[in-house]
Amino acid sequence: MFLIPCPWCGEREESEFSYGHEAHIVRPEDPEKLSDAEWANYLFMRTNPKGPHLERWVHTAGCRRWFNVARNTHTNEILAVYLMGEKPPKNLAKEPVKGAKS
């Protein structure tokens, strides 16, 4: 049961939040132009690291805002919390960064 610092409401228990999915997976501008393989990659392929992971959470029981969390999946340490549209801290950015839509 870890604590997540909601960028708005402050630290709350994990159970108040819902995990969305890996962060910075941007919906393609024109899906119809994508090959089946490219579309499948967008739909299904996700990283699964032991260590820092950029993820998207929503404060379900609180302000209902979505935001990004950089979390170490091994220790559950929350390395950073940042708003939608913001880029991850430089030292945590995965390579290559698919980039958040601003």
Partner: peptide, 17 residues
């Protein structure tokens, strides 16, 4: 209902602000 609400908000807040 709650799932749909969260789903709609996610699109609005993340992809289509």
């Amino acid at each position: 209902a709650p799932r749909v609400m969260a789903w709609l908000e996610e699109w609005l807040q993340t992809e289509w602000p």
